[in-house]
Design a protein around this nucleic acid. Structure first.
Lengths: 217, 217
DNA sequence: GTCTATAACGGGATAGAC
DNA sequence: GTCTATCCCGTTATAGAC
């Protein structure tokens, strides 16, 4: 295989970036782990930034495709009407959860990468996140705004932002480890966790001022 | 003032850590911004890690104190009964939002730091977040579990985790800038945004399988 | 308590052989 | 397409004068 080294670099980079962050991963340990050397990175990707972008793009492309396809399908199902919020959320969340379950052996994924990127330099966030996810997120935002016209576009946008924040951190490893001592991550099956997350987010997105203060008690 | 340099270092460090992350901030630019030099850091804090911990602790101490005080107060108000979910959330969220508004001129805060830390090395997360916020989070989790016994402790714990994730990223600068192109951050007043966040999270925390699929349409 | 100067190290990028 | 060797820079940490 001519580009075997290239793929190996992508795999190892994805894994290490997700685990230790981008700036926390040096090309030295990266290439040593991949069984190659520094020069290979610069030959195949031009620079570390080039490698970062390639790693990100490989998953983002597939993820965006699946998300938009799922959304289009459910929108086609309910002719003329808008799909329920849960279904829109599922179209956004499920493809990532599916990926997580499929790639479970290698502990690397764009879903975790998305969280990792948060703390990189603003330029990196701008270049990667907005570029790779901007249009898809805008598309889903529209769908949600159409599904809840009574809330107003601004409020839905703000709540969608909250949802994205939750999603970003939920599937990261580090967040599960901390903050609540003694309470390990609940389910190993990410697809199941996704359903519980959808319940949580859908209720939050739909929240109205008329929410009952005490449910049943 | 004898320890003027020390305070200056803490202020500048907090600001830069929140803006560029910990590993993204070098002691060189940090000390130059503070108008001092490398040696001062090691004299006052022993190492960069020592500085990080001091920066974190200064805000965490005050934040935990305020959060627990607010919670104790609202629990005292409703004798014997459990306070509503919104009030518990407000006791957790409002102190941070207050801090943000008060320290607005300097754009630094533990609330943003909390997000920044996410992508640092796991050791940093473990050392800082769990240590500084562990007991307080556990205390609030108990309160929420008492407020919603019908949901079961595990589900409440999982949803509280979602809430913490949302809170962590919501007040970060970077997250607002990306992901949804063309939609700048909504309100400048963080206390107001906190109330909207409370609505969102409370509805999510309380979500039941009986949530209506379409609210009013 | 604060400084300058420097040590000791690790980072990404590159040249050039093969 | 892959390697070794090296360059150059920025990093933290430290020594020692004041």
């Amino acid at each position: 295989m001519p580009t075997h080294t290239r793929d190996k670099l992508l795999d190892v980079a994805e894994e290490l970036f997700a685990a230790k962050g981008i700036s926390g991963t040096s090309l030295r340990v990266l290439t040593k782990t991949a069984g190659t050397n520094l020069a290979a990175v610069h030959y195949h990707f031009g620079s570390k930034d080039g490698l970062v972008d390639a790693v990100f793009e490989r998953r983002a492309t597939a993820l965006n495709r699946d998300r938009l396809a799922d959304l289009a399908r459910i929108e086609a199902t309910c002719e003329g009407d808008t799909p329920p919020v849960e279904d829109i959320l599922r179209a956004f969340i499920a493809p990532g959860a599916r990926m997580l379950d499929e790639l479970k052996d290698r502990r690397a994924l764009i879903v975790r990468l998305r969280c990792r990127v948060e703390a990189e330099a603003p330029a990196v966030v701008e270049a990667l996140v907005r570029r790779h996810f901007g249009v898809t997120c805008a598309r889903f935002l529209e769908a949600l705004q159409r599904a809840m016209p009574e809330l107003g576009k601004e409020l839905v946008a703000e709540r969608f932002r909250y949802s994205l924040a939750t999603l970003s951190l939920t599937f990261s490893e580090t967040f599960d480890l901390d903050t609540i001592p003694g309470h390990p991550p609940t389910g190993s099956h990410d697809a199941l966790r996704a359903e519980r997350l959808i319940d949580f987010l859908a209720a939050g997105l739909r929240a109205g001022p008329d929410t009952p203060r005490r449910p049943s008690a």
